[in-house]
Computed example of a mutant assay.
Amino acid sequence: MKKYSKNKLPNDVSDTGKKRKRIHGIFRKIKDSSYFFIFPYVTLFTLLIVLPVVVAAVLSLTYFNTVQSPEFIGFKNYIDLFTGDTVFLQNAISNMLIYSIIVGPLGYIFAFFLAWLLSQVPHRIRTIYTVIIYSPSITGPIMMGVVWRVLFSGDQVGYINYWLLEWGLIKEPLQFLQEPSLLMPIMIFIGLWGSMGVGFLAMLAGLLNIDRSLYEAAHIDGIRNRWQEVFYITIPSMKPQMLFGAVMAIIGTFNASGLAATLSGGTPPPQYAGWLVVDHANDFGFTRYEMGYASAITVVLLIIVVLFNKISYKLFAEKD
């Protein structure tokens, strides 16, 4: 039986101790590194954002009907989209731009204005009104469409037709939801009604966290009314919240879908009124099962959203 001195250990035991120390050292460096803290975010961002975008970009170059294997066809989907798809060019794109340009900026302005008004009232009242204003965005546009469908119903049961008939303004019920010229304005109205979402809460939080001493110093320097406070103190002090609200407004409006079909009761709606780009992608992807073509539509939409986000960053991002 071998005996070892207290100061001398066998090679395998000493090597094991060194390996353990080396491993502990590596783990300690990883734990103390900043990359350790962002690893969960990077992992989720890659799996939920980057990977789907890459898959959509790859599928957009193929013909894929979800049954057969994807067949590479190059840029044929994009060529067909911009040269032969009249519904996409004449209806989906134009409707999306009209809806986004009206609902996005107006909803953004209304969100800031309501948040500014609520920041002036006591805490309890502010909480109640915040819940009331925010609640339509929780239900989503499709659920709101179901509610508004009752109001704009094309018979005497519809509340608006009933009131118009009672007041003698019309002689027969108006087909609000089947008339292409009326469907889009109704969608815009509903979109504005439900645009007070997360961006509204972010702006309210930004308003409530502005240092009040800035206003006192501004009054000493010559500011005399609330409008000057808003433009010279409030907005510059909450640019991150303003940027977040702008990005959420852009994403929310460009990502809208299903509202026209819910209101009109059919897919597609009459003369494709209110037919948006996401509706077009859903139609090809989940009704016709042309996933490659649907992916091309989503890639084009992604490029449009990125361009509008760049504009938002130019307006509200910090200079430094």
Rank of each mutant, 00 (worst) to 15 (best):
I109H: 05
L44Y: 12
I133N: 03
T62D: 08
V300C: 15
T298A: 14
E229R: 12
V147F: 08
T46G: 15
D85R: 10
T234L: 08
S135G: 01
A115D: 00
V278I: 14
H280L: 09
N282W: 10
S237F: 10
S100K: 01
F200Y: 07
P70V: 07
Q120L: 10
G84M: 13
K19W: 12
I132M: 13
E290K: 14
S137D: 05
V121N: 07
H280M: 08
P105V: 03
F27E: 12
G168I: 01
V299L: 14
T86W: 11
T139G: 05
G104C: 09
T46I: 12
V103D: 00
L48Y: 13
E179F: 01
V247Q: 02
Y232P: 02
T86H: 14
I30H: 07
I26A: 11
A57K: 03
V55G: 08
Y289R: 12
F286R: 12
L301T: 00
P269K: 10
D15I: 11
T267E: 12
P180F: 11
V146E: 07
V247H: 02
D279F: 04
T130L: 05
Y108T: 01
L302S: 13
S119T: 07
L301S: 02
Y293C: 07
K19A: 12
L201R: 02
A246I: 03
Q175H: 09
K314V: 07
G154W: 00
I23K: 07
A260Q: 03
S100C: 09
M203A: 05
F39V: 03
G158C: 08
I98M: 06
R288W: 12
V277F: 03
G285C: 14
I235P: 00
L208N: 14
W163D: 02
L302N: 04
M143T: 04
P236Q: 11
Y35H: 11
I251P: 02
G158T: 01
I142Y: 05
V131R: 08
Y35A: 12
M187D: 04
V54R: 10
F176A: 01
F176L: 08
T16Y: 13
Y108M: 00
N77I: 02
A296F: 04
V147L: 14
V53P: 03
L89D: 08
V198W: 05
A217Q: 13
I133M: 05
I73N: 07
V87G: 06
F39A: 15
L315R: 05
I235T: 07
M238D: 05
T66Y: 13
A294T: 06
D12H: 14
M143V: 09
F286G: 11
I23G: 09
R149Q: 13
D320C: 00
I133K: 01
I102L: 07
N209D: 14
V67I: 15
L174K: 04
Q175R: 11
M1W: 11
L106D: 01
K239H: 08
Q156T: 15
F284G: 01
P173E: 03
K171P: 02
